[in-house]
Protein backbone atom coordinates (compact mmCIF):
# COMPACT_ATOMS: atom_id res chain seq x y z
CA UNK A 1 0.00 0.00 0.00
CA UNK A 2 1.39 3.36 -0.98
CA UNK A 3 1.86 5.55 2.09
CA UNK A 4 -0.18 8.70 2.46
CA UNK A 5 2.92 10.85 2.50
CA UNK A 6 3.70 9.89 -1.08
CA UNK A 7 0.31 11.09 -2.20
CA UNK A 8 0.81 14.24 -0.23
CA UNK A 9 4.17 14.80 -1.82
CA UNK A 10 2.60 14.40 -5.24
CA UNK A 11 -0.19 16.77 -4.39
CA UNK A 12 2.27 19.22 -2.90
CA UNK A 13 4.35 19.17 -6.06
CA UNK A 14 1.28 19.71 -8.20
CA UNK A 15 0.13 22.51 -5.99
CA UNK A 16 3.51 24.17 -6.10
CA UNK A 17 3.61 23.87 -9.87
CA UNK A 18 0.18 25.44 -10.07
CA UNK A 19 1.21 28.19 -7.74
CA UNK A 20 4.31 28.90 -9.77
CA UNK A 21 2.18 28.94 -12.88
CA UNK A 22 -0.25 31.41 -11.39
CA UNK A 23 2.55 33.66 -10.30
CA UNK A 24 4.69 33.57 -13.42
CA UNK A 25 2.42 32.88 -16.37
CA UNK A 26 1.12 35.89 -18.18
CA UNK A 27 -1.56 34.41 -20.39
CA UNK A 28 -4.97 34.22 -18.84
CA UNK A 29 -5.44 30.70 -20.12
CA UNK A 30 -2.23 29.50 -18.61
CA UNK A 31 -2.96 31.13 -15.28
CA UNK A 32 -6.28 29.47 -15.41
CA UNK A 33 -4.84 26.07 -16.20
CA UNK A 34 -2.46 26.50 -13.30
CA UNK A 35 -5.41 27.12 -11.04
CA UNK A 36 -6.97 23.91 -12.26
CA UNK A 37 -3.74 22.17 -11.42
CA UNK A 38 -3.98 23.51 -7.90
CA UNK A 39 -7.52 22.27 -7.59
CA UNK A 40 -6.46 18.82 -8.66
CA UNK A 41 -3.66 18.90 -6.15
CA UNK A 42 -6.30 19.56 -3.54
CA UNK A 43 -8.32 16.65 -4.85
CA UNK A 44 -5.40 14.31 -4.54
CA UNK A 45 -4.79 15.48 -1.02
CA UNK A 46 -8.44 15.00 -0.15
CA UNK A 47 -8.54 11.49 -1.53
CA UNK A 48 -5.29 10.58 0.17
CA UNK A 49 -6.53 11.84 3.50
CA UNK A 50 -9.88 10.17 3.00
CA UNK A 51 -8.08 6.89 2.48
CA UNK A 52 -5.86 7.32 5.49
CA UNK A 53 -8.85 8.11 7.70
CA UNK A 54 -10.95 5.42 6.08
CA UNK A 55 -13.71 7.96 5.72
CA UNK A 56 -15.67 8.66 2.54
CA UNK A 57 -16.33 12.32 3.34
CA UNK A 58 -13.14 13.37 1.68
CA UNK A 59 -14.15 11.63 -1.50
CA UNK A 60 -17.49 13.37 -1.64
CA UNK A 61 -15.60 16.59 -1.15
CA UNK A 62 -13.63 15.74 -4.26
CA UNK A 63 -16.88 15.49 -6.16
CA UNK A 64 -17.84 18.96 -5.05
CA UNK A 65 -14.45 20.33 -5.93
CA UNK A 66 -14.68 18.81 -9.38
CA UNK A 67 -17.98 20.52 -9.91
CA UNK A 68 -16.56 23.78 -8.73
CA UNK A 69 -13.71 23.34 -11.14
CA UNK A 70 -16.16 22.73 -13.97
CA UNK A 71 -18.20 25.77 -13.07
CA UNK A 72 -15.04 27.80 -12.92
CA UNK A 73 -14.04 26.54 -16.32
CA UNK A 74 -17.36 27.55 -17.79
CA UNK A 75 -17.34 31.02 -16.36
CA UNK A 76 -13.65 31.61 -16.71
CA UNK A 77 -13.60 30.57 -20.33
CA UNK A 78 -16.59 32.76 -21.02
CA UNK A 79 -14.79 35.76 -19.61
CA UNK A 80 -11.56 34.93 -21.38
CA UNK A 81 -13.33 34.38 -24.67
CA UNK A 82 -15.23 37.63 -24.30
CA UNK A 83 -12.01 39.50 -23.78
CA UNK A 84 -10.13 37.64 -26.45
CA UNK A 85 -12.74 38.33 -29.09
CA UNK A 86 -12.57 42.00 -28.35
CA UNK A 87 -8.88 42.56 -28.22
CA UNK A 88 -7.05 39.51 -29.52
CA UNK A 89 -4.98 39.06 -26.43
CA UNK A 90 -5.30 37.33 -23.15
CA UNK A 91 -2.02 38.53 -21.78
CA UNK A 92 -2.73 39.74 -18.32
CA UNK A 93 -0.13 42.48 -18.63
CA UNK A 94 -1.92 43.98 -21.60
CA UNK A 95 -4.97 44.64 -19.49
CA UNK A 96 -4.06 47.97 -18.10
CA UNK A 97 -7.11 50.13 -18.46
CA UNK A 98 -7.52 49.92 -14.71
CA UNK A 99 -4.18 50.83 -13.36
CA UNK A 100 -3.26 50.94 -9.73
Amino acid sequence: MVPTTSYLALSGILFALGMIGVLTRRTAIMVFLSVELMLNAANIALVAFARSWGDPTGQTAVFIVMTLAAAEVAIGLAIIVAIFRKRETTNVDDLAALKG
Binding site: F15, A45, A61
Partner: peptide, 13 residues
Amino acid sequence: SAVLIYGIAFVYG
Protein backbone atom coordinates in the same frame (compact mmCIF):
# COMPACT_ATOMS: atom_id res chain seq x y z
CA SER B 1 -10.41 29.32 -4.07
CA ALA B 2 -7.79 26.79 -5.02
CA VAL B 3 -5.65 27.76 -2.07
CA LEU B 4 -8.66 27.65 0.18
CA ILE B 5 -9.63 24.20 -1.03
CA TYR B 6 -6.12 22.96 -0.51
CA GLY B 7 -6.37 24.33 3.00
CA ILE B 8 -9.64 22.49 3.50
CA ALA B 9 -7.98 19.31 2.34
CA PHE B 10 -5.26 19.75 4.91
CA VAL B 11 -7.63 20.56 7.71
CA TYR B 12 -9.52 17.46 6.77
CA GLY B 13 -6.29 15.54 6.77
